[in-house]
Design a protein around this nucleic acid. Structure first.
Lengths: 343, 343
DNA sequence: CCGTTTAGTGGAAGCGTTTCCAGTATACCA
DNA sequence: TGGTATACTGGAAACGCTTCCACTAAACGG
């Protein structure tokens, strides 16, 4: 159907090897021959057959990215970073979306195999110990994004630090009743960010000599609606929090809605801080913790490409910084009401 | 390095062909042999080599999706539809992001080739006539999403209708000065949606006997910031519009910002309607035109898989419906002020 | 009981590349 | 002038799989 290297060779009156050399820019071809071959290639619209190429080469020329819920703004942004750096590398990007635990397990087991892909990028999914062992088998290069596992190459965020900074910000403003809304701290996907941010939250509280109140921590399925529900619960508490730290901007939106529902004004009656700094955060004036989403993806690919060149590289891990972005949803608590309530 | 079919065959004491048959669920294997082979496969952690498989099969087992600006909410949602329906099909999804015209041209020329992919999904990019010819060459199955081209298989949206409905809604509310903000009507990517929606806008105006005012149409680069700038221009006109139809929700956000900048209240002083019904639209109470984003992606894959089975299928095109979603950013214009200004 | 079908099996060709190896000119050096 | 390095070139093996074809042994019908 389409032209093969043999067709080109015959038509140009040269050997197969020569055509291959031309295609691969080998210097061992005389200019005259090269030109003749190039003409025939153009004439026949010849394109090398990927599968044949990779079979012969022993490489798939392919990089697989495993991403959970790849429509979430934060994931999309990381993916963009991945794509941007992979586009000109000659590798194709295979994207695998994970929305169920079964698929998570299948993907982590079957995809990182030499027969399928030269390299694998795993976003936000922390492999279990036995999976780590499998991932370390030589043959496939693996880079973890947004996750830290000792002994593997990772690009990650210091989420504990992020949680700390967010809470610290609220403490600095004078808040004493600070709640935290997040995904479940342990979940079957093995996401670590809610857990790490929680640890930072607790640490900041402790460092400030502030007691931790169990009922100020609520967790539930990721998403705006669930966060709205949790925030509503929180806000109807006897001693309702004056500030809520949401583990993601999306969840912060839910908190904002809940506040709106009961006619609480933000930041006057309630301070809200999110996490991620997704695009809409700026629009809404949401105070948040910015993490370098695009950059983690981009850097992850860089590390992967390096490892692809040399598989024996020692694993490296890079921590990316987070940053507090103060906008319009956090402010000092109203002394009056909180004092009144307290006495 | 990793086990091949030969290793399995030797270890199980059977022929290559038998192993292949087991792997591919051929009925021509006795239960006993099958079990023996399966045991060895498990033991050796054997996985068929993709490239070898596809070379032998003459198929790449791969589907490529070409998407412009794949982080835009509307595109992400379509991609999710694509992924959802492709996940269990046995085909791998290769994603190609297009953010420059050069890459658009390269992708449209090089990717839809039998040697690279069994099928190609093209999102929102209308091929030029000469590209259409190339895309119709047998060998690759191509499905266009969000674009209509005669003679090709497409899943598209009636954007003209959408533009009409949006404008009609504003007219019905009593607006007489309705502006339209969009991407440039003709652009090098050959996006058609802004153009079609514009046509609907004009048509609705005409049908209502309303004159079209050139200065009420502004176009610029896609995005919130540009839309905000254009809206600001519009709102500082002598006879400023009382309603603005934005060609996307993202742009509608920019309009909302512009209104906020000059302390115009929405919908009291200004009605705003968007397009797409992206997730944030509901949160913001944005009136908009909903288009079935996920569904176009999902349906596109279905059609592609059908064509993959039988390449000689006649091209079909399916139009998906749009729907007006009325929320809180549109209302009747304030008679008082508009009358006052007019006289 | 003997042909004939049928289930199960293995060998080998072929998919389209890359690349090692061997070969043939031509150029260069002594 | 002969020998050797040099610049190209082509043949063929190999990559790991699928599948056609040939084959054997058992089952079946007359």
């Amino acid at each position: 159907m389409s032209a093969t290297i043999r067709d080109v060779a015959e038509r140009a009156g040269v050997g197969l090897a020569t055509v291959s050399r031309v295609v691969n820019n080998s210097p061992l071809v005389s200019p005259a021959t090269r030109q003749r071959v190039l003409n025939v290639i153009a004439e026949l619209r010849y394109t090398p057959h990927q599968a044949a190429r990779s079979l012969s080469l022993g490489k798939t020329l392919t990089v697989t990215t495993i991403a959970p819920f790849f429509t979430r703004p934060s994931v999309v942004e990381r993916l963009r970073g991945v794509e941007a750096n992979l586009a000109d590398s000659g590798y194709q990007l295979i994207v695998c979306n994970v929305e169920t635990v079964e698929r998570r397990d299948i993907c982590l087991r079957d995809l990182p195999r030499k027969e399928r892909s030269d390299g694998v990028l795993i976003i936000s999914l922390a492999p279990h110990p036995e999976e780590v062992t499998a991932l370390q088998q030589p043959g496939v290069a693996v880079v973890l994004i947004d996750t830290y596992v000792a002994g593997m190459t990772c690009v990650f965020i210091d989420d504990q630090q992020g949680g700390y900074i967010a809470t610290r910000h609220l403490l600095d403003l004078g808040h004493e009743r600070i709640a935290y809304i997040s995904d479940p701290l342990t979940d079957p996907f093995n996401f670590t960010s809610s857990r790490d941010r929680y640890a930072g939250y607790r640490q900041a509280l402790t460092d400030a000599g502030m007691p931790f109140c169990e009922s100020y921590h609520r967790s539930g399925m990721h998403g705006r609606y669930e966060a709205r529900r949790l925030a509503t619960e929180l806000l109807s508490l006897d001693r309702a929090p004056t500030a809520i730290f949401a583990a993601s901007d999306t969840q912060a939106l839910g908190v904002l809605e809940a506040a709106h529902d009961i006619h609480l004004r933000v930041p006057d009656d309630l301070s809200v801080i999110g996490y991620d700094d997704i695009e809409i955060a700026e629009y809404l004036g949401l105070t948040t913790i910015r993490q370098p989403l695009f950059e983690t993806g981009a850097r992850g690919v860089e590390l992967l490409l390096e490892r692809l060149g040399n598989l024996d590289t020692d694993p490296v891990s890079e921590r990316m910084p987070v940053e507090l972005v103060i906008r319009r949803t956090t402010a000092a608590p109203r002394k009056l009401s909180s004092d009144a309530e307290r006495r």
